[in-house]
Write a protein that binds this DNA or RNA. Sequence first.
DNA 1: TGGAGGCGTTGCAAAATTACAGTGACTCTG
DNA 2: CAGAGTCACTGTAATTTTGCAACGCCTCCA
Lengths: 212, 212
Amino acid sequence: MAEGLRERKKRETKQRISDIATGLFLEHGFMAVTVADVAEAADVSVNTVYNYFPAKEDLFLDRMDGVTQRLARMIRGRDRGESAARAVLRELRQDIGAVSPAYGLMDGFDAFMNVIEHAPPLKARLFHLRDQVHEAVVATLREETGAAADDPLPLLVGGQIAWIESAVVGYITGEMTAGRKATTVSREALVLLDEIEELLGEKVLTYAVREG
Amino acid sequence: MAEGLRERKKRETKQRISDIATGLFLEHGFMAVTVADVAEAADVSVNTVYNYFPAKEDLFLDRMDGVTQRLARMIRGRDRGESAARAVLRELRQDIGAVSPAYGLMDGFDAFMNVIEHAPPLKARLFHLRDQVHEAVVATLREETGAAADDPLPLLVGGQIAWIESAVVGYITGEMTAGRKATTVSREALVLLDEIEELLGEKVLTYAVREG
DNA sequence: TGGAGGCGTTGCAAAATTACAGTGACTCTG
DNA sequence: CAGAGTCACTGTAATTTTGCAACGCCTCCA
């Protein structure tokens, strides 16, 4: 491995810009902070910012990169005898149970979503993010099941699974921005997950069961 | 003015390298610290170190750049009716009187000189430094008196003046490395300056008197 | 309504920094 | 005494960062 000086500095610079930008956005709102502000606070030029982040929104949503692959990771890590959907349900219940770092995204989930709520460009990006999540899930299902390229089943099941998460996230976001208590919301979210599970068809709940 | 980002970072980088290098030298000695050590501690590449400092010695002697022009500045700042030599004598007495930042070079003068004492390349540089001081003094005397280019007097008087400083510095260095107390040494240095003044000829003491 | 100014974004040349390889002098060691 | 190793230092190409100017979109204001 032996990470060189150049690689390390690149990583640190990108991380510093992202951290500082997120901090400024949380404090003043996405619209009130200019890219120039971020650059100055991070002690770099504006071009350097754009060197690492294609657009201003990426400064805030960058840390959601991991989110794109989150469901896919859950599926790949399912237990023996467990289906893809049940693995996702189980992991989501576990995450919600660990209230503090709400939903595993970051501390202050409500503050984070609040920034997005007041920034149209960011909301637009979130929709695109859902597509990415969906695609990642579908791709994973295809890999795990070895389904044919023209098999529509992964697409459909993947859509259901991706929907589970967005439903829960949407619910939590709405309740949190409404000012509800985090512990209350998380308890209700668990109930919501139960209802979601009842809504799912048998085909979805038993798709892509891991051998063993 | 408006110092740009590039210039500011350049200045900060050079300063950081110099500071860290000096610290390492004071702690472990000049010979025991490699340029690679300095580079790593300063979080830059070896080439960047050489980009700012032509040779390893410069990492330590860099902060003596001001010293080169110190006597020249004293001369240019002499009072009305005061000669170049007397201005230097006066300023030196004043510096020595303010014991703490010994001789205006830096805190911990003895530690500083101790590093030099144990590093042949550094000692060699000090001799070169004296030439530079001498040249600066001579050049200043020529400017101030408007002496002809072939007039040997500035050269001779300048040599005497430069010698004053090196004599005092040499004395202080010797006594300090011998472990004498700083206050004692500075008191003796003042006596030494008196003796030096008595040794100087009338021509030297009255050269380049500022009009007024 | 028109112009001035702020902001996101891009392109390009210059400057700074790094990686890599190499040279020469020196020390240590078998 | 041969060879391996360390270290100061240099050269060169690649990479990163910066400075500068520009474009389009938008808002504000006269």
